[in-house]
Design a protein around this nucleic acid. Structure first.
Lengths: 218, 218, 218, 218
DNA sequence: CATGAATGAGGTTTCATTCAT
DNA sequence: GATGAATGAAACCTCATTCAT
């Protein structure tokens, strides 16, 4: 897991622009490939082609397929954490904050389908890559902490009832959004209807919000 | 997907017992392999070895890796549907029925981790295999219908509020149970604690039940 | 090359009708398969399926793929010799006899395309099967002898010139008919026109007849 | 059939010599293998061994067995067309030109037995590969056109009679030479004598020349 | 007479990776 | 920094053939 040179995004010394661009191109290509085909299904050749670069370069920058996969995972987590930073739940009144948290989670997963498939792949491998990551602590979501303060405020304002565990609730919100999208294909096939139709999607968001609010409200 | 002659479980004519046993051994071995390594990661050789049979026989009975994967999927769905048959929600009072549904779902996923990984694999492939299945209609869960009657009873008994969609609720219960187990490895790695510890597991079941009941109860 | 039991066509003792029928079915199926795909390309499984019989039976009756191929070859030669028997060149006047010989050869190849491809396969294998045949002497064409008498008559009637070798002429007639049909696909592809079109076929027969007659006539 | 970059023979830019040499080695090895064993009988392993190269490299350069077969066919046609270029029938008097055409065809087939077996293989496959070739128009023989002018000259000099179709005659000459060599093994086996003996070969060439001249001469 | 079950060897093709420049 | 050439190992799959009944 030796990330050669440095991570392209955090480079401070003025290194070759080309080098950075190449590494980013590889990461982007790898993210697509891994997310569409899984770790075992992904092809180094295909990644090189997608990146428009020579295959040898991938090994030069990332060492191996597994190391590349980890790099993609790290970047994927960095992206969602960055997006979460832009949510300011502490500035919103509690009920609306919950609504926005559900909505944000839903839309983030919706707009970043690769997040779901990459995580599924990593879970299939029992988080073997993540466990070896040196940046694992940076992946912890700030939202859990934030959700805790929202719940606390709601309780003080006598809106929410006591005893709601923020970790459990955070996981539950993720569960509701994640599963519907992650398992959409099998669910649609079995139910025999298109769960991605606009109306079905709107109903789902509404239902999830009701479910979560029904639970936290007194 | 030409299952030779008939499904091995439904055989009536006295066929060679060995043929049935071989097919079942292959299916069991394939289920393990596919669930642990995914479709692309699974190896036909490894499946043959696990089954204690010649590799060629897999092709003789199941045609190809993809067809075998579909056969495993079909059997996996058949298994859960069979287990669901043994739940008699219609004989239980509404609140307890909801509790049992959550509990059943949780424990089924817990005891059948292959269900989760197989479904993840199939979703990675956009349900391509399932869509080709001739038995897809048999995979529809009877629980949705049953849940509908439970909700109806609860409403008539003035316990539940109106307007709860049984499909949405069924999916939500599945979501809550599925995600926690499916994403356990990455969640544990990132939260830095063991979410499979007995205490954490008990808390999770309790939380999920509260969440669902908090929503359906008036 | 142990033909088990006996050849099905020449059975004298009243053996099972089924046995004969099965052997004939296998031979017919094998002829199709070998002629369409060549020796190496042919599949024993496919032959069994074409014959509507169990694959094991092929081995029971014919021993091996190579033995089966030889059996097919022998029957194929027997068929053309039988057809040749029905030509009575000795009863026709010389010029017309030559015409009929060309026409017969042409139409026989045309109506028995398997004859051509089977012979090509056997030649690819340097006649290895044929050389081991015990019936090889029966395959000699009676036409060479017959052609000799026709040429002799033509010469005596002062129609044909002397010194025409019947073997060479027989081979030449075969060449002209065989090649056009055997190489039809590549020739059509390269010339960019359909050499099997009715008009082209008629022209070909006419040309061949002219060529041969132009040579033998004084 | 993606020939990498360019055809090795037409390379202008200074590319790695090894790449060219490797491709040529593969083509030569494949030609031998295919011509001796047919398409289905040929083994990629064997081709790699013959070429002294890694099997993987064949796929790297030629894509698949079928694409390699097409490449061999294209080169084989290119070779004979090149040889035909060296015949200058237009500079020779008509009768001698016909003689030389027969002689050239005969000796070319004789010295390039792979030409015959490769064409037989391709015809077994109904010219499937050739039809996909992008260079198919380059395979048209210039001899047909040349033969036309020879016949025309002969007619003007009152040597040849009118109405001889050059395409038919070209095919006939090919037929006579091709069949004798192509079917030599079966013919020799059945006639019970060696048709490749020097004397038989000389007689054959003489007979063919007589046959063709007997036809075209007034 | 006939068949379904089973197999070892080997087929084409693919893969992550390294070499040489 | 970048690339085309090359490879050993192993993947999926197929084949002629035999076993057991």
């Amino acid at each position: 897991m030796k990330a050669p040179k440095d991570s392209p995004t955090e480079t401070l010394e003025p290194r070759s622009r080309d080098a950075d661009r190449s590494q980013l191109a590889i990461l982007a290509a790898a993210r697509e490939e891994f997310s569409q085909l899984g770790l075992a299904g992904a092809r180094m050749d295909s990644i090189a082609t997608r990146a428009g670069l020579n295959k040898r370069l991938i090994y030069y920058y990332f060492g191996s397929k597994d190391d590349l996969f980890l790099a993609v995972l790290e970047r994927t987590y960095a992206d969602i954490r960055e997006a979460e930073q832009r949510l300011h739940l502490d500035e919103i009144e509690p009920v609306e904050a919950i609504r926005q948290l559900v909505s944000f989670t839903w839309h983030y997963y919706l707009e970043h389908p690769e997040f779901i498939t990459l995580l599924n792949s990593e879970n299939l491998h029992r988080a073997a890559h993540l466990k070896r990551s040196e940046r694992i602590q940076e992946m912890n979501s700030p939202l859990v902490q934030l959700l805790d303060t929202v719940l606390e405020r709601g309780r003080r304002e006598n809106l929410f009832h006591a005893g709601v565990d923020p970790v459990q609730l955070y996981i539950s919100i993720a569960s509701l959004c994640y599963f519907y999208l992650s398992n959409n294909h099998t669910l649609s096939a079995i139910f025999g209807r298109d769960l991605r139709a606009p109306k079905a999607m709107a109903q789902r968001l509404s239902h999830m919000t009701d479910l979560v609010l029904g639970y936290v409200l007194r």
